[in-house]
């Protein structure tokens, strides 16, 4: 559905986006994740034809950006960062404006309007001026505007920024739902968001993809083996050694306070073994918790290390 080849954007000798290539199959929800200034917005602006790429090719739904920029824009519904809207317009006036500008045909107009109003839950504010709406509503108006011409591809730049937790949950549900009918590319710097919504994640830093994969795959590939945190009272000196002999255990790290961090192979859960061992030896088991590495860890590790780029390049291939 989306093909991006070797996309670059250079601002006065500094590459903001540096040779990005990726394909997004139809129906996928792809998340761009990266610290501020990583180049997420620039990539999206180039994909929507707002910013001309320095080099590279963008093809969306079979339309090439170079050959037919206006045609490409028909295939995309774009919600820019901070949801720019016209505050003086009423919601239905704005949606009507977007429909005309996006080239929605007359016979489909009222059906399109009903569709987006219903989908984005705007029926109770239709007659209200946009300037008087809350941030959550404005976000939904922006989304409705991007959806009005039923584009195959939706590009959403930080769609949940500045919303309160309830609004965030609603918007996330909406995006997940939209992902069934549209190919979605969204950017965010909120990690749980990506884990919740996206089927695939790109971690972007300094204009390059430093990791690409499902949230699951990224976690295991990049963080390494899963770890179980075990807290034991009355463990003997040889406890670490005994724990290390349990099946699937790769390494045991004993901390001073009676906590053992047991690293194990991904498919072997050592917790039952730990329990039986504790019963046999008469240890008092105070805690037994799998330590789930989050994408947060992946993110921090990838975007703060100086050697992030080379490591990521190999990681991206592996995943």
């Amino acid at each position: 559905m989306i093909e991006v080849e070797n996309l670059s954007r250079v601002y006065v000798d500094t590459p903001v986006v540096d040779g990005l290539s990726f394909h997004v199959p139809e129906g996928q929800i792809l998340g761009f994740l990266g610290p501020n200034g990583a180049g997420k917005t620039t990539v999206m602006r180039m994909m929507t034809g707002f910013l001309p790429p320095t080099t590279g090719r963008v093809v969306v739904a079979g339309v090439d950006l170079d050959a037919d920029p206006v045609g490409l824009r028909r295939k995309i519904g774009y919600l820019p960062e901070n949801v720019p809207l016209y505050p003086e317009l009423r919601v239905d006036e704005y949606l009507r404006f977007r429909a005309d500008v996006e080239g929605v045909r007359r016979p489909e107009l009222s059906e399109s309007l009903e569709y987006v109003v219903e989908r984005c839950m705007l029926s109770d504010v239709r007659r209200q001026a946009i300037g008087t709406l809350s941030k959550g509503y404005r976000q939904r108006v922006g989304l409705a505007g991007a959806l009005i011409h039923k584009p195959p591809v939706l590009i959403l730049d930080e769609p949940t920024v500045g919303l309160d937790p309830n609004q965030i949950i609603k918007i996330r549900e909406l995006i997940t739902e939209l992902g069934r009918d549209h190919t979605v590319v969204l950017s965010t710097h909120i990690l749980p968001e990506v884990e919740q919504i996206c089927e695939r994640v790109f971690i972007i830093d300094h204009g390059r993809v430093v990791a690409d994969g499902t949230p699951e795959a990224l976690r295991t590939k990049l963080i390494g083996n899963p770890v179980v945190r075990v807290e034991i009272r009355g463990a003997g000196d040889d406890a670490a050694e005994s724990l290390g002999r349990l099946p699937g255990v790769v390494a045991v790290n004993r901390r001073a306070d009676g906590v053992f961090l047991i690293e194990h192979a991904g498919d072997a859960d050592p917790r039952e073994g730990v329990f039986h061992l504790a019963v046999d030896r008469g240890w008092i088991l105070l805690g037994l918790t799998p330590q789930r590495a989050t994408l947060e860890d992946v993110f921090v590790r990838l975007t703060t290390a100086d050697d992030a780029a080379p490591m990521a390049a190999s990681a991206a291939q592996e995943v």
């Binding site: 929507t48 206006v70 824009r73 028909r74 774009y78 820019p80 720019p84 977007r98 500008v101 080239g103």
Partner: peptide, 14 residues
């Protein structure tokens, strides 16, 4: 200033 130009110029108008 408000950024609406981005919406306008990424819609299929010239």
């Amino acid at each position: 200033r408000s950024g609406t130009i981005e919406v306008l110029l990424t819609s299929p108008v010239t």
